[in-house]
Design a protein around this nucleic acid. Structure first.
Length: 600
DNA sequence: GCCGTTTTCGGCCCGACTGTTTTCAGTCG
């Protein structure tokens, strides 16, 4: 039972309550949706949290929902939910995946058009729409009929409510839109916001804010974006378009003087904003993208509000907005409502690690051919060193995959590594700007032994140990395997610990609290692998590691010199896990890092 | 159904936009 499956079930239940009696169940519905929201974004499986007795630690999961999740994990379903779902036609649920179709619309369509079977309800609905049967329903018209047809078409082509892209892919789209918007003469300032600004590992849609005194002109400009497929909607201050790649881009415009509150609002997360606004309310203040007003004042429409500055306090800078409600400014990466607001009230937020703190990359693969078991890098050791120098690093770890152990005997492997070490030493003596470390990425075999024997490992300053095979061991066996691999004195870093690939492969199953405890006690480090499809450790696990005092390193796993630029993604992940400089070993100066590496 | 520096009861963020409507319901972020 995965988190997204659990979330889907909770959303279905929220939909059932909406259909039955939305007013009566208003807050219950919100509660189910809130729990689903957090579950979808969680990078730890709820089923694991259940085993550890920690379900209640999930935001928005209280006694009741925790009980339902427990039942789901144990039996695959929830009796109470099964009963509830029987009260609405089954064909309602598949329609909820289609954009712009919510519970009410789905129920009305299914009931009036007598759509019986859940399996083919989308196709049936499409047929009826083409026959003009939707337009004939009361409350619908020609326009809503064609909108539904288009939504179905886009749904077939991959636009659903939950499809997410990996961060750099979304960033690339966003940057193209930004450079286009910046050419608009009326746009004074353009910023990427939303989950992109929070540096979330995956991104749903793209949010951009523009400062301008002429929103209409900016929105008209946006509507002519060359890569757009269509304009989804356009209003006084906001607009959404669909790109040719079926990605949604939302733009909001505010005058420069109110830009600070817009940045805050549009950065989110939703949960962060709700908590922030609830807190402000307790102080008699009402927060929105327009600024801060006293919640006791009569609500007037937006244009009046903006015209009458006495009613509304506006902010050009985001820091001022937070300050006005007595809070420390919160780094966007932390804005997930996982305790950051409480700390900001006390002005005790951690000082997060930054890219400029990084003194070296430790996990890089050169093209020096040690005949490895996995892929070789594309650039020479010298080229990698040069790139590291250009990045301002003080040290660089060469960590090619270990030589294939099926294709060589120990003497051959020994010789291969001696040859590589000579090249490294030559650079170390001739170039005083950078220190190269003799590392290696060594496989932890299925039995927990390292792929190389002790005599060979002695040639190294240290080893990054990783799993590259047998991903599907039982949890206990996997945990023992990792602990055994890490126990070797030369094993210093656990590479891409979970082995997950975003949108492709889930991580391995292991007893992470045990592994974290072992690392903390034995001075081993966990890697935060910056490769955008890995981001491994995931942010929530970084947070756990920080809490337990486990040291980490941020690496790129580069197989070419230009790939060393992805370091920033690892830093983002570390920041989302609330890591400070002190938690990250490769912020240390070279001599101190060497001491750690040699376990002194 | 969740949650707590005001609370274990009584509240629960705030707003945009569209289509089908003459004042609002539904969806979305």
């Amino acid at each position: 039972m995965t988190n997204s499956e659990i979330a889907k079930t909770l959303r279905d239940i929220a939909a059932v309550y909406s259909i039955k009696d939305e007013k009566k169940h208003y807050f219950q519905i919100a509660a189910y949706q809130r729990a689903a929201d957090t579950l979808e974004r969680l990078t730890i499986e709820a089923s694991d949290l259940f085993v550890q007795g920690r379900l209640r630690e999930i935001k928005g999961v209280g006694q009741t929902i925790a009980g339902y999740i427990e039942e789901m994990v144990k039996t695959g379903k929830v009796k109470h939910f099964e009963e509830l779902k029987k009260t609405v036609p089954p064909a309602v649920f598949p329609l909820l995946n289609i954009p712009k179709i919510g519970p009410k619309t789905a129920f009305k369509l299914v009931s009036v058009l007598k759509l019986k079977r859940a399996e083919n309800v989308v196709e049936e609905l499409e047929k009826k729409a083409k026959k003009g049967e939707i337009a004939a329903i009361e409350g619908f018209g020609e326009k809503s009929q064609s909108d539904i047809l288009r939504a179905i078409e886009e749904y077939y082509r991959g636009k659903t409510k939950t499809r997410r892209m990996v961060f750099p892919f979304a960033l690339e789209i966003a940057e193209r839109v930004v450079s286009y918007l910046k050419k608009c003469p009326e746009a004074k300032q353009v910023e990427i916001l939303g989950s992109l600004r929070r540096k979330a590992e995956t991104v749903g849609d793209i949010d951009i804010a523009v400062a301008s005194d002429q929103p209409q002109k900016v929105l008209a400009w946006f509507g002519k974006y060359p890569e757009k497929e269509r304009v989804i909607e356009v209003g006084d201050a906001t607009s959404s378009i669909l790109t040719s790649g079926q990605r949604q881009v939302d733009v909001m415009v505010q005058p420069s003087g109110a830009f600070g509150s817009l940045l805050q609002h549009f950065t989110g997360s939703k949960a962060h904003n709700i908590h922030l606004r609830t807190y402000a309310q307790s102080k008699g203040l009402s927060l929105s993208e327009y600024g801060i007003k006293s919640s006791k004042q009569i609500t007037v429409n937006r244009k009046q509000l903006i015209a009458n500055k006495k009613l509304l306090y506006q902010f050009s800078k985001e820091t001022d907005f937070y300050e006005a409600i007595g809070l420390q400014w919160i780094a966007p990466e932390m804005r997930e409502d996982t305790g950051e607001i409480e700390l900001a009230i006390k002005h005790k937020l951690p000082d997060l690690v930054e890219l400029k703190d990084i003194k070296g990359d430790l996990h890089t693969h050169s093209s020096f051919n040690i005949e490895p078991s996995h892929d070789l890098g594309a650039n020479t050791i010298g080229e990698m060193a040069k790139k590291a120098e250009n990045l301002g690093y003080k040290y660089l770890g060469l960590a090619e995959h270990n030589p294939s152990i099926t294709a060589h005997n120990n003497n051959q492997i020994y010789d291969l590594l001696c040859r590589r070490n000579m090249v490294i030493e030559k650079i170390n003596t001739s170039n005083t700007n950078i220190t190269l470390f003799k590392l290696l990425e060594v496989d932890i075999q299925a039995d927990g032994n390292l792929a190389l024997d002790d005599k060979i490992l002695e040639l190294l300053d240290g080893a990054i140990v990783s799993i590259h095979s047998s991903f599907r061991l039982e949890k206990d066996e996997m945990t023992k395997r990792i602990l055994k691999g890490l126990s070797h004195p030369k094993a210093r870093i656990l590479g891409h610990p979970t082995g997950r690939l975003l949108n492709e492969r889930p991580g391995i199953e292991a007893d992470w609290p045990d592994i974290f405890e072992f690392c903390q006690k034995n001075n081993k480090a966990l890697e935060i692998n910056s490769w955008p499809y890995r981001l491994d450790l995931p942010d929530t696990m970084v947070r756990e590691a920080v809490k337990m005092g486990v040291k980490m390193v941020i690496d790129t796993d580069s197989h070419a010199s230009d790939q060393m630029d992805v370091m920033r993604y690892g830093v983002y992940t570390a920041r989302r896990g609330w890591a400070t400089k002190e938690n990250i070993l490769n912020t240390l100066p070279p001599d101190m890092f060497r001491k750690w590496l040699e376990n002194k």
